[in-house]
Simulated scan of single mutants.
Amino acid sequence: MKTLVMIPCYNEEENIERVVGRLARVCPDVDYLIINDCSTDHSREICDKNGFSYISLPVNLGIGGGVQSGYLYAVENGYDITVQMDGDGQHDPAYLKALIAPVEAGELDMSIGSRFITKDGFQSSALRRLGINIISVLIHMLTGKKVRDTTSGFRACGRALTEFYAYNYAQDFPEPEAIVAAVCGGYRVGEVPVVMEERMGGVSSIRSFKSAYYMIKVCLSLVVYRMTCGKRIRRKS
């Protein structure tokens, strides 16, 4: 199937060449699109120098707006499967085929790459794992769906969910909220085991001293999102 790998990029000058290079070596038959979210470093210059496929947003939209731009691009260009893969090098394209498989087979609408099934590779800090577990429990309470790796940005979607996200994507805490939106919209969500790596370079958008605050905010946001998701969701007119 025609597949697009979306790579959100904000100040990833230390990583983006290696990320695209590894993707091209391992999965040369897929298309990719770097979504440069108004980076203030040399990310755009690196994309130009290497002839990378990218779009550059005129203003910084954050991870939610950036990824939604990718979904819109996928819809407009007729892609069957979209894959979100972070630009920091944590996601190994060697698992791309396994991630896509249940979507390609029609078993899932969204397949999430989870580091917590086999518990191999980089597992994040203890504080972040605690927060992810709490978010997992909350999502299960709100939707009845059990998802272990709720903040994983390594995920594949089929055509129907791609179009849904192109017009209904969460902005504040997109990874967990996107799960709630998909389940509430009647889409099938599941996980496949992957092994993740530590960030190659640069700085994460979620700093360690903010993790507890982030967890509280995302939990409140999920509750509000679940209560209002029927009003938020809209189809393409």
Rank of each mutant, 00 (worst) to 15 (best):
D120V: 08
G153C: 08
S114K: 05
I135F: 00
F122L: 07
D120A: 11
F122V: 09
F122Y: 15
S124P: 00
L127E: 15
S124T: 09
S124F: 09
R115L: 08
A160H: 11
R115A: 13
C157Q: 14
G113V: 01
G131I: 03
G121L: 12
G131K: 02
D120Q: 15
M110R: 13
I112R: 00
T143I: 10
A105S: 13
G153V: 06
S136R: 04
F154K: 05
R159D: 11
R129V: 11
G144E: 03
T151C: 09
I135E: 01
E163H: 10
R148C: 05
V147M: 03
R159H: 10
D149L: 10
T151H: 02
A156E: 08
G144S: 07
T151Y: 01
A160Q: 14
A126F: 12
Y167I: 05
Y165A: 03
I135K: 00
L130N: 11
S125T: 15
Q123A: 10
A126K: 14
I135D: 00
E163G: 05
S124C: 10
G144M: 00
I132S: 05
A166I: 12
Y165D: 05
G113Q: 02
S125E: 12
S152N: 06
Y165W: 15
S124D: 13
A105D: 15
F122N: 15
L108E: 13
T150D: 03
I112G: 05
K146L: 14
T150Q: 06
R148P: 01
R115Q: 07
R148H: 11
T162E: 14
S114E: 11
A156Q: 05
I117M: 08
I112A: 06
T151M: 06
L127W: 09
I139A: 09
K145Y: 01
R128D: 07
C157P: 06
G144V: 03
S111A: 12
M110C: 15
E163F: 08
K145S: 05
Y165T: 04
E163P: 04
V147P: 01
T162V: 15
A160D: 15
M141R: 02
D109V: 06
E163Y: 03
I112P: 05
I132R: 04
F122S: 14
I112T: 04
H140G: 14
K145N: 02
T118L: 08
Y165C: 07
A160S: 14
S111W: 02
D120K: 15
I139L: 13
I139P: 01
A156H: 02
S125D: 13
G131V: 02
L127N: 15
S111E: 05
A166S: 15
T118F: 05
S152D: 03
R148F: 09
S152C: 09
A160W: 08
I112W: 00
K146I: 15
F164A: 07
T151A: 02
I135R: 00
K119D: 11
K146N: 13
S152R: 00
M141H: 06
R115S: 07
G144A: 03
R129P: 00
S125G: 10
R128F: 13
R148V: 06
T162W: 13
I132G: 01
G106Q: 12
I139D: 03
R148A: 10
F164D: 04
